[in-house]
Design a protein around this nucleic acid. Sequence first.
DNA 1: TTGACAATTGAACAGTGTTCAGTATATTTG
DNA 2: CAAATATACTGAACACTGTTCAATTGTCAA
Lengths: 208, 208
Amino acid sequence: MIRLKMGITQRKEREKEEMRQLILDAALRLFRERGYDGVSLRNIAEAIEYSPGTIYLYYRDKSEIFFALQFEAAAVKRDHLLSVANIKDPWERLVEFGRRYIDFGMRHPDLYDLLFITRAPMESVENQECWQLGLATHSFFVDTVQACVDQRYFKSTDTETIAYTLWCHAHGLVSLFVRERMRMYPEEKRIELAQKSFALVVKMAETL
Amino acid sequence: MIRLKMGITQRKEREKEEMRQLILDAALRLFRERGYDGVSLRNIAEAIEYSPGTIYLYYRDKSEIFFALQFEAAAVKRDHLLSVANIKDPWERLVEFGRRYIDFGMRHPDLYDLLFITRAPMESVENQECWQLGLATHSFFVDTVQACVDQRYFKSTDTETIAYTLWCHAHGLVSLFVRERMRMYPEEKRIELAQKSFALVVKMAETL
DNA sequence: TTGACAATTGAACAGTGTTCAGTATATTTG
DNA sequence: CAAATATACTGAACACTGTTCAATTGTCAA
């Protein structure tokens, strides 16, 4: 009897989770197409064939949907980046990390936007977890730079500044792409330019 | 008689221009405080003590107000940057240009945002002029890099990639600031870090 | 003063995020 | 099984949004 009850509770739990994911999937698809402000809750509701009010039974408000997506994005990014952890040589690890950072931004411009560009209130529990994820990835990055410094890969020993500078370049590169500020370069040359720029920074960093 | 009429026409013209500027000033102040989406036309109307409908006699829609501000921002930026044109030595000119680019972003985060980050429909006549302004500034930048290349300031001779790489760094640096993605660094260290990073890039570029 | 023109208004429209009383369904209890 | 309870869901309603437009006010020439 209590066993039965438990089973039902579990099922309900599962269904609740499925519904949350259903909303999230629809929201991501719509946000991708039309941006955060271009999508209304009624649009999302219509997409999943429920009434607008229903969504509020699963998310407190619209921004919470956004935060949930941001959290997912942070997880995807972490998995995309931390897979370089097995590379022993810190310099190679760093280069590959950079390559993957840019690759992540290019492959998932919407997620990158969510994480690093979009303005959004930075409260919410969901978002603190997201912040933790991001911080972990950042720490991994800084640690890798530190390892390079320890092994005298650079002339400079200012780990913090080196790490920050590399991040600035990668973030600048990706966000100019994501927010379409490269119109002065012909479409087909943009990717090539980005690759050349990355290569140049790698070369520069070698003689840092 | 016709003279008088002309005078009146001129005054009307002037008043119209004043009204446009009044709207723009109020809009900029509000956008600064609450962002583009956080401000309604009724807010702007209230701020200038006119009815909502009045604004549509001076700007076709809300986005045109935005574009007008973007155009102003582009002009401010151009003036801020092109004042280095009188520096003869291309390398010194380039370094000062970079310093001022970052300085512009830090001093006018809202304008920088308008120009390089905010997503907005890129049509409108107003905006094409704005684009012209931006392109001119960019050309000046590339020309300066080219001058450095010509005088063998760098090892590399790929002007385009060098220019783009420097821009990536500066843009990344500013936009991480503007969109508040530097929370992992304590508030008081951020400016210092930015300065150190700029200095590092200058040093790196010397051995490019 | 009157007629024409320009500037301004504010109500109206369709949309937004959000709330909540009511309904329908599912589960537990007697 | 039937009744009572708990849960899921609805859709109308609220105050807001950008935008339009008939009606009103104010200004100026004849």
